[in-house]
Design a protein around this nucleic acid. Structure first.
Lengths: 343, 343
DNA sequence: TTGTAAGCGTTATCAC
DNA sequence: GTGATAACGCTTACAA
């Protein structure tokens, strides 16, 4: 910007009419405009390469056309998929998709939300899971309420500790399905590579596994829960720590696919065969999950489709008055080659 | 938005002063304000949870605080890295990072740019390579000129066919380094898996390889150039086509890492050993390149750092008057295990 | 069918 | 130190 901008006035002057008329033309207003003037206006717009200043329109209409998307890490395939889905749907409808990477830092989450508030975002998607942190909960609660006061459409993926519409991803259920499947295949001693410590999603997946195992009278022992961080590297490191207990266990569940993939890689690297020596399962079904050695058995959460659903939901909430459908995500156990059936 | 927004007037009323004074406080203006009133204003801001409407500020100051980033596909690790780098730097400075996925479609590229124009973006990064397409060149040229007229800061990664500041990634040089290395290792018959057809980056990498091979009196034969699309899947498909010629060639260059990785995977899958049966090289050095079987020899382009450099450059161009440094990217041959030294 | 004027929330200019 | 007022580019009553 900064330089000289073509405004509605310039168009009006060239078309020899008032700015009002120009406005009516560009907005296809139902207020009548004679064909003659309309054509003159169109011609002027064309000639001047005019496009209405959406900032100004936004100020007037009390809409920013900004949709904030808060993720933990766009380099994580999981988030990239989701963001892409959202963007596909939303950005084609003249919205600005504004992303924030927070690295699961409380500070950055708060920063993102305050920016979004200051920019009067029309909608905000909390695409990353909630943080289990007192400060996060308290301050987020407050600012989210302010956002609501502004009329912002809010949507969370997985539960969040403030009062917004949350899409359930069925994290507990996913882990439960895995537990059942593993037990069904004769596994009794199962280890778990955890997700990020403060992340609620980690908690849900861990507890889901624990609870379901308990139903089979099995324990997820504390010393078989290894720390992780939802990353490939985290999975690799966990594999190294797992080595000590490798003879005690027959299967490992990674808190997500990235973890499971890193796990498999390092296990292979250490000469341990998957699944003959040990079985591995993940959650997410990332595109790369089918290309590991062996291909990863996992739970598919259709993340990209979730993204487009989110986009659709937002668009409906923002523009139409009809009640929008709930968003349902169907998960599915994808049986590939990383689990062995035990005698 | 839509509901009731807290404005500077509300703050003024509560602090018993004029909006002007409030404005001076929130902007740390050098215009004097008594300590007393300043405190009352601060208190009122606190109490009302006021944050200035950046849309309105933008209208006034002729700045949108929007930085557009146009990529081909955010799910592509290459772009995810770059966007993350840009976002890290930029978004912390109160800018809105607005991304567009264009899937290398002329239409979507144009759409993105016109949106960015309408939103009076302060800066636009053409993060994806240029398309080799007449319509793209012509229409882009026109709208880019309009953007320039608005004072938008423009930056291209790799050359673009319109007059903007472009960062050279050294695509030709990267391919040349690979050619030299392969020849040095005794390879004479080399195949190439191409990138997307209309993409200028593909052209550069292909020509770089061709030219450098020629210096060694070697030919990159047309029938040894296989189509690809910069994706893992594309690499896999190419591997299948390559099978026919497998006995003629000793090495394959993937136009990027994703391609090379897909190639290696499918080659393994077909029982062909890398590098003992055939050598494979990529370009980019994605994080995942070191985890293939065998780890991929490639050229490292520090994409994430490039992203932060871009962020820095934009910020400087936008805010400071001092001349900004050029952005230099150092490439490097990363020798891993996918190339065999021939007799 | 067209146009005038007020106002969206902010800030720069110019008084006082 | 403080505050009216106009203006940014646009839209929306309200007139004509």
């Amino acid at each position: 910007m900064a330089n000289k901008e073509v405004t509605i006035k310039d168009v009006a002057k060239l078309a020899e009419c008032s700015p009002t008329t120009v406005s009516r033309v560009i907005n296809n207003s139902d207020h009548p405009v004679s064909k003659d003037t309309a054509e003159k206006v169109e011609a002027a717009i064309e000639k001047l390469n005019f496009s209405p200043n959406r900032i100004a329109q936004g100020l007037k209409s009390d809409k920013s056309n900004i949709i904030g998307v808060i993720v933990h890490d766009i380099c994580d395939s999981y988030f990239a998929q989701m963001v892409k889905g959202i963007e596909e749907f939303i950005s084609g409808h003249e919205y600005i998709v504004n992303i924030y990477n927070t690295s699961r830092s409380v500070e950055k989450e708060l920063y993102a939300v305050s920016m979004l508030k200051a920019n009067r975002a029309d909608a905000v998607v909390f695409a990353g899971g909630a943080l289990m942190d007192k400060e996060y909960e308290k301050k987020m609660y407050s600012i989210v309420e302010q956002l609501k006061g502004q009329g912002t459409v809010l949507l969370g993926v997985t539960p969040h500790p403030f009062d917004i519409n949350n899409i359930s991803l069925g994290n507990k259920k996913a882990a439960a399905i895995i537990a059942d499947y593993l037990v069904e295949n004769g596994h009794r001693k199962i280890a778990f590579i955890d997700g990020p410590e403060k992340l609620y999603t980690s908690y849900l997946r861990r507890e889901g596994l624990k609870e379901s195992l308990l139903k089979h009278d099995l324990d997820l022992e504390d010393e078989l829960i290894f720390p992780g961080d939802f990353s490939f590297e985290g999975g690799r490191k966990a594999a190294l720590k797992l080595l000590d207990k490798i003879d005690e266990i027959t299967a490992v569940v990674g808190a997500n696919d990235a973890t499971a993939l890193g796990l498999i890689w390092e296990l292979n690297n250490q000469g341990i065969k998957v699944p003959s020596d040990i079985s591995v399962v993940g959650i997410d079904d990332l595109p790369e999950a089918k290309y590991s050695y062996p291909p990863l058995t996992t739970i598919s959460l259709p993340i990209h489709q979730l993204g487009t659903n989110i986009g659709k939901y937002l668009l409906e909430s923002l523009t139409s008055d009809q009640i929008t459908d709930l968003i349902n995500i169907e998960m599915q156990l994808i049986k590939r080659k990383s689990v062995k059936k035990l005698g």
